[in-house]
Nucleic acid binder design. Sequence first.
RNA 1: GUGGGCGUAGCUCAGCUGGUAGAGCUCCGCGUUGUGGUCGCGGCGGUCGCGGGUUCGAAUCCCGUCGCUCACCCCA
Length: 426
Amino acid sequence: MSEQQQAPRGTYDVLPGVAEHRARLVDGVAAPAFARAGYARIETPAFEHTELFARGVGESTEIVSKEMYTFTDQGERSLTLRPEGTAPVCRAYVEHGMHKLAQPVKLWYEGSFFRQEAPQAGRFRQFFQIGAEALGSDDPALDAEAIVLLARMLEAAGATGCRLRISSLGSSAERAAYSDQLKVYLRANEAALSADVRERIELNPLRAFDAKHEGTQAVMTDAPRLLSSISGEDRAHFDDVLALLTAAGVAYEIDDTLVRGLDYYTRTVFEFTSDRLGAQSGVGGGGRYDGLVELLGGPPTPGIGWAAGVERVLAVAEAAGAQPAAAAAADAYIALDAEADREAAFALACALRERGLAALIELGGRSLKGQLKQADRAGAKSLVILGGGRAAYDAAVKNMHTGEQRELNDLTKQDYIDRIAAELIA
RNA sequence: GUGGGCGUAGCUCAGCUGGUAGAGCUCCGCGUUGUGGUCGCGGCGGUCGCGGGUUCGAAUCCCGUCGCUCACCCCA
């Protein structure tokens, strides 16, 4: 076993059965929902220049400081497997001059992302996300639209019972001022904090709100809150988003301890969580990032987006009782023995498929009894039997449901496919 | 990186205080000299994660190591 090859730590194989589930989430639920809301699909590379994430995501984040898969290529360029999708989409927005299009530009994507973390329930090193980014407008309706989209998508996927927590981080200036205020508070209570939080007071004090450490939580109960210091336009923007969510019938909880891990967030931040998951309860989340495009060399451009974890959405759906779909049934199974004309049987299978029928042919060298079993497993509606003492192109067609079997005689090389197909369709 | 749990057939697992491996499911065949889904019988399949130690003898005890998993941290 130890010598056997296995998938790298934190990665996994999507096996048949599960693969269909995932495809249904992306192609059956997400794609149509995005299309109805005017979001266009975009695909960006699996790796980018390291600099994009260092600047876009932020040096102080856990992701950039220790979770990136970074490598140097043959041209001595530092590249990084994308750990998230917002910075790449913003890069593409700038690179392709999308700011000259009618605004806002609404984009969505699906794909794999990479972070070098210790894997655990719901957390992988290669994971899949469905994401949305809407750039070029700071209208609160854009925020609300994006949030409603995710809320409805989760329900459609069967991931019911998720909680939506929402808050506002205000402008970056307000956030900076608040950050200083919080640092002072944390230092004053340093003794009660966990070692992790203490070490991050300077780097990212907001993170303290997330800690599960008891002493830290006690301290944070009385900590100053960013939301209460937000006023003016930012406050009005937030209130507007809330009013629109209410109008759309989406329930939310205002949570002034909500912190998002990426540096670029401003104003609206939100997160959908589920108590059906393990420690990684976040199903999807995002927020507004009004300074990011400019930071990446583009014109001042507001934006909002979110990402949802495919594995987590599916996990919630499964825990909520969403049932797997039945395997696709075959229309016909072609059974043959050693004396059957192999070429005729093969040509028949190919021809039936070209006519739109799901046709399977025996490939395992089974006994006829075994072939019947296999046809049954494949859910075949009909069985076509060749050989067994019949003339070259003659065949029997058996209805697997009723057990009824009809012999087709005097078939020729010219008409056997048509006649067998006609019998199958009848 | 730190801590807990676990590593025995493809899958789920049993194997007590040491005597060199079992079950169910799956798969293949037979029972039906071609005809399935039930049932019965048989078969394929394991260097018991790996390495070392104790012992006449270890899947079973000891040490080490690797892997998986859950949690902290972080986040989708």
